[in-house]
Design a protein around this nucleic acid. Structure first.
Length: 419
DNA sequence: TCTGGGGTCCTAGGACCC
DNA sequence: TCTGGGGTCCTAGGACCC
C-alpha cells in the first residue's frame, strides 16, 4: 500500500497559519518577481483565477477582491519540514516528493488499517503544524495520486483499489492527460493510438506502449493495473547539476547589471554546492531576453567555462562565470533573465579522506574561508557577508512587494507580529 | 510596464574505440 | 562495385513534475 499525503493549497495554508484573518478569503501566492499566481485558496479558485495566471492580466476589479502575496520560500520550506517530521513520527517510511507532497510506503497495511492511519495523520498534521492535508491510498503511486485527488473533493482520505468496478468507472471517465506523468505531448501521441481515457491506457499492451512512446509510459500502464513500477529517486541524493536563475526585476541591456545579478546567483549556487558537499567541474551562464519577445529582439544563449580543477570556491566559480558571461553577452538586447548552472558535480572527498590527503596550505585556507562565509550567512542571515560590493537599490533586484514575514526562521520577523 | 524556478529521466545521435 | 559490426560514453533536447 502506498499513501500520498498532499498539503491542501500549501503556500496559502502556510500564510493562513500566521495570518488567520486570511481564512475564508480569496488568497493567492505569486511566483518570484510577483509574476503569476502559483497557489490559490478555494475562494480564489471560485473567482475563476487560473493556476499560473499572469497577475497583470487579472482584471483590476477582480484583483481588488483578493489578497495576493509575494512568495515566502523560507516560510514554506520550514513548514514543509515540520509536516514531514509529523509524518515520520507516524509512518514507517516517508519519501518526500515535493515541497507539499510525500509518499508513504505502507507495505503490509490493509485498506482499513491504512485508512485509520491516514485519518490520524490528517488530524496530527493539522494540530501540530496548522496545515490541512489530504491522503490518497492505493496499491501504486499513480493510483495513489488519483485517490488523493478524490480525497481533496471530500473526506480528506480516500482508498482506491486496483480491481474494483468503481475504479474502472473512474478511469473510464478520466481523460488520459489528467494522469500523473501524462502531459500534452504524450496525450496527443496516445490519442493517435486510439487511447484517450485512463482505462483504455490501462488495457493497452505494455510493450506496444513502450515502442510507441517510452518506458516511462509503459510504467504508467503497469501502475494503473496495480503493479508498482515507479521507484522514487532519493531526494537526499546529491544533485548532478545545480541551477540558480532569476528574472530581473526589469529588463536591462547593461552588462554591469547582469554581472551584479549573476554574482548573487553564483554566491547562492556556491552555498548550495557546499551544502551538498560537491565540487563543480564547469560553470554555465545562461542569458535570455523575454520569452514573449520574438524576432530580431530575441536572444537566448549560454556559454560554458570549464574550471581548471573541480572546485566549490565561490571566487573560482565567479571567475569562470565572468568569462562565460563575456562569451555569451551581446550588446543591444534587453535581457530579462540570467542564470548560472554548475555542471558535472562530483562528491568532494569525505572529510576523513581529506585529512589523510596531502593538502596545500592554500587549499585549507580556501575551505576555511568558504565554511566561515556559509556559517556567518546561515546564522546572521543571508548576504550578511558577500563577495564584492553590495548594491541594494539595483533595478534588477527581484520584485516581491507583498511578502509575509519569515515567522518560523527569523525571530526578528516573528516579533513584528506583536509590534 | 508587468508572464517563475528548479529539478529529473529518457532517447537519439555523434564521437570514438577495437 | 564496393563501403563491418558492435560497443561505450557524452551531450542536447524533449517531456514531465511541482
Amino acid at each position: 500500500m502506498i499513501a500520498l499525503v498532499d498539503c491542501n493549497n500549501f503556500y496559502v495554508s502556510c500564510e493562513r497559519v500566521f495570518a488567520p484573518a486570511l481564512e475564508g478569503r480569496p488568497v493567492g501566492v505569486l511566483s518570484n518577481n510577483d509574476g503569476c499566481v502559483v497557489a490559490r485558496s478555494e475562494e480564489l479558485k471560485a473567482l475563476g483565477i487560473a493556476m499560473g495566471a499572469p497577475v497583470h492580466l487579472i482584471p483590476p476589479a477582480l484583483r481588488r477582491q483578493c489578497t495576493l502575496l509575494s512568495s515566502n520560500y523560507a516560510l514554506y520550506g520550514d513548514m514543509s519540514r515540520r509536516v514531514n517530521e509529523v509524518l515520520e513520527s507516524l509512518a514507517p517510511a516517508v519519501e518526500p516528493y515535493s515541497i507539499d507532497e510525500s509518499f508513504l510506503d505502507l507495505s503490509g497495511f490493509g485498506p482499513l488499517e491504512a485508512e485509520a492511519l491516514a485519518r490520524e495523520i490528517r488530524e496530527r498534521v493539522r494540530r501540530e503544524t496548522g496545515i490541512p492535508v489530504s491522503v490518497g491510498l492505493a496499491p501504486t503511486r499513480v493510483l495513489a495520486k488519483l485517490a488523493n485527488r478524490l480525497a481533496k473533493h471530500g473526506g480528506g482520505v480516500r482508498y482506491l483499489a486496483a480491481q474494483a468496478p468503481v475504479t474502472r468507472a473512474l478511469l473510464e471517465a478520466l481523460p488520459v492527460a489528467e494522469l500523473w506523468g501524462v502531459a500534452r505531448r504524450s496525450a496527443e501521441r496516445l490519442t493517435v493510438l486510439g487511447i484517450d481515457n485512463a482505462w483504455s491506457l490501462r488495457q493497452a499492451e505494455p510493450t506496444r506502449i513502450r515502442r510507441a512512446l517510452s518506458v516511462v509510459m509503459e510504467r504508467i500502464v503497469w501502475e494503473l493495473r496495480g503493479h508498482g513500477a515507479i521507484v522514487m529517486d532519493d531526494l537526499d541524493a546529491p544533485r548532478r547539476h545545480l541551477l540558480v536563475s532569476r528574472s530581473l526585476g526589469r529588463p536591462t541591456a547593461a552588462a554591469h547589471e547582469l554581472h551584479e545579478a549573476l554574482r548573487q546567483h553564483v554566491a547562492r549556487a556556491g552555498e548550495k554546492l557546499r551544502r551538498q558537499g560537491s565540487l563543480a567541474q564547469a560553470v554555465r551562464v545562461v542569458l535570455r531576453t523575454a520569452p514573449f519577445q520574438v524576432g530580431r529582439g530575441a536572444y537566448h544563449s549560454a556559454a560554458l567555462v570549464t574550471l581548471p580543477t573541480p572546485s566549490d570556491d565561490t571566487r573560482e566559480l565567479l571567475r569562470a562565470a565572468r568569462q562565460a558571461l563575456a562569451a555569451v553577452y551581446r550588446e543591444g538586447y534587453r535581457y530579462q533573465k540570467c542564470g548560472v548552472m554548475l555542471m558535472g558535480l562530483a562528491e568532494a572527498g569525505a572529510p576523513q579522506e581529506r585529512l589523510l590527503a596531502e593538502e596545500s596550505a592554500e587549499t585549507v585556507r580556501r575551505r576555511r574561508l568558504m565554511a566561515t562565509l556559509d556559517r556567518v550567512n546561515r546564522e546572521l542571515g543571508r548576504d550578511t557577508v558577500r563577495l564584492g560590493l553590495p548594491r541594494h537599490d539595483s533595478g534588477w533586484a527581484l520584485r516581491c512587494a507583498n511578502r509575509s514575514d519569515r515567522y518560523t526562521t527569523r525571530w526578528d520577523e516573528l516579533l513584528r507580529v506583536h509590534a
